[in-house]
């Protein structure tokens, strides 16, 4: 059985935001909605100050708290691990937002497009897929996955910081990278088993003695 997962190489990410733009272009998300984000953090003080970047999106957890919390069953987990939102079933209860430790889902309540009240032809086409008052979030570009293409964010990354693959396939890009580099799963202590691994440096194995069963 396939289980899709991402890796994010924190050493390679330069914070260019091309993944953010690629996601927007691919999915046409409304203004102020960002399924993909690159979070920044400033560390240290001059002259040793540095800025680190952490690309963040839905982690498509194996035990997704959003799916459990959703009262309507609008959050659906596919057999390949991708979690998506059935906007027809969503009533906007925002339980998903409270339950997600990564604060990923959004609820769009309508509003202007990027260029004011008048939507562009592109926005008109894309916005038809979004229900006002319903939750939305990254769906791993499953329409692309089903065609054998990579998610838009992965494809656009110029630094090869983002990768994806099948966790169950030992030779997938994700598993190769996990063998090569140290990695962490964000907020793994909550038991969500996110489908995201941050690669943090050379040498395989988890950081902090975490046992995810991968080498």
């Amino acid at each position: 059985m396939v289980r899709w997962a991402f890796t994010v190489d924190l050493e390679r990410c330069v914070g260019c935001q091309s993944c953010v733009i690629a996601c927007k272009a691919e999915n046409g998300t409304p203004r102020n909605i960002h399924w993909m984000k690159v979070l920044e953090r400033e560390e240290g003080e001059f002259p040793y100050a540095k800025r680190t970047f952490s690309p963040t999106r839905c982690n498509h957890c194996a035990n997704p708290p959003c799916v459990q919390a959703c009262p309507t069953g609008a959050f659906v987990q596919r057999k390949d691990g991708v979690v998506w939102v059935n906007q027809e079933a969503c009533i906007g209860s925002m339980a998903c937002m409270s339950a997600c430790p990564y604060y990923v889902p959004y609820r769009w309540d309508g509003g202007e497009g990027y260029f004011g009240q008048q939507l562009t032809p592109y926005e008109e086409v894309k916005m038809r897929g979004f229900k006002r008052g319903a939750a939305q979030k990254c769906h791993f570009c499953y329409h692309r996955l089903d065609e054998g293409r990579p998610p838009a964010c992965v494809e656009s990354c110029p630094a090869d910081a983002l990768n994806y693959g099948d966790l169950e396939d030992p030779e997938s890009a994700v598993n190769v990278l996990l063998r090569q580099k140290k990695h962490i799963q964000p907020r793994a202590e909550l038991g969500t088993n996110p489908g995201l691994y941050y690669l943090t440096g050379k040498g395989g194995g988890t950081i902090g003695g975490g046992g995810d069963g991968r080498r």
């Binding site: 102020n32 937002m97 604060y103 959004y106 769009w108 309540d109």
Partner: peptide, 14 residues
């Protein structure tokens, strides 16, 4: 904001 979530927050890790 017209969006519920982190829409109006800066993209900072905090």
């Amino acid at each position: 904001p017209k969006v519920k979530g982190l829409a109006d927050a800066k993209f900072i890790l905090d």
